[in-house]
Computed example of a mutant assay.
Amino acid sequence: MSAGPSDLVERVAARRSYSRVTPIAPSHEELLPLVAAAGRVADHSALHPWRLIELRGDARVRLGNAFVEDARLTGEAAEKLASKPLRSSLLLAIVSVRTKSEKVPGWEQDAVASGVAHVLSLLLHDAGWGVIWRTGNHTRSKAVHRMHGLAKNERLLGWLYVGGVPEESKEGHRKSIDPEPFLSVLD
């Protein structure tokens, strides 16, 4: 084991969320190896309790319409809400797929899906893409669930908004935490 931080630690520490991204986005083919690697997260009983849904083009418009249907807004407020999924040309819906299991409770299956989303966001960042994980009340909306074609055992955990890193954002960085308050030793 090395004495100093590894290159991987430095790359993970450099991760940040990009609330604005450019229209370029990875292709389906470019996503496949990243999804395969993200699928290596800890997964009790190897249930693979997750799936991802790519939303591009008109799918993003339909998502915005589902936001509006759920919120029951009209006029300018509805237009503003409907435009939110258009902030990025690629959204990846994170879906937890709960399987009946005596060994693995539902919360743990949700944790696996969350792990996949987070590792995928790290991999996308490392590949040079801007990413932000967006959640909110819409993840529990019936209209949004219908729009995604979710089954009764599926839960929407949010969307990764993925695109190019804007030139003016390349210099920004996320402030590192002081790890001491978060890591305790049990005597």
Rank of each mutant, 00 (worst) to 15 (best):
A3N: 13
P5L: 13
S6C: 02
L8N: 02
L8V: 12
V9R: 08
V12M: 11
V12D: 03
V12R: 08
A13C: 09
A13K: 14
A14C: 03
A14M: 07
R15L: 04
R15V: 02
R16I: 07
Y18Q: 07
S19F: 14
V21Q: 05
T22Y: 08
S27I: 06
H28V: 14
E29L: 10
E30M: 10
L31H: 03
L32Q: 14
L34F: 12
L34M: 15
V35H: 08
V35E: 06
A37H: 15
A38C: 05
R40W: 07
V41L: 11
A42T: 13
A42W: 15
H44P: 05
A46C: 12
A46L: 12
L47M: 05
L47E: 01
P49R: 06
P49I: 01
W50D: 00
L52K: 06
L52Y: 07
L52F: 09
I53R: 14
I53T: 13
R56A: 09
D58M: 09
A59D: 15
V61H: 15
N65L: 10
V68G: 12
A71T: 02
T74W: 06
G75I: 06
A78K: 09
E79D: 15
L81I: 01
A82N: 09
P85G: 07
L86W: 05
L86R: 11
S88A: 15
S88N: 05
L90M: 00
L90K: 03
L90N: 00
L90W: 03
L91G: 10
L92W: 01
A93M: 02
I94W: 05
I94K: 03
V95G: 04
R98D: 12
T99S: 10
E102A: 13
V104R: 03
G106C: 11
W107T: 06
W107F: 10
S114Y: 03
S114A: 15
G115C: 05
V116H: 00
L120Y: 05
L123H: 04
L123C: 02
L124V: 00
A127C: 02
G128E: 01
G128I: 00
G130H: 01
I132N: 10
W133R: 01
R134C: 09
T135Y: 11
G136Q: 04
R140V: 07
S141P: 04
A143C: 02
R146Y: 05
M147C: 14
R155L: 10
R155I: 13
L156C: 09
L157S: 04
V162N: 02
G163V: 00
V165F: 00
P166S: 04
E168I: 04
E168S: 08
R174V: 08
D178N: 13
D178H: 06
P181L: 08
F182L: 14
V185D: 13
D187I: 07
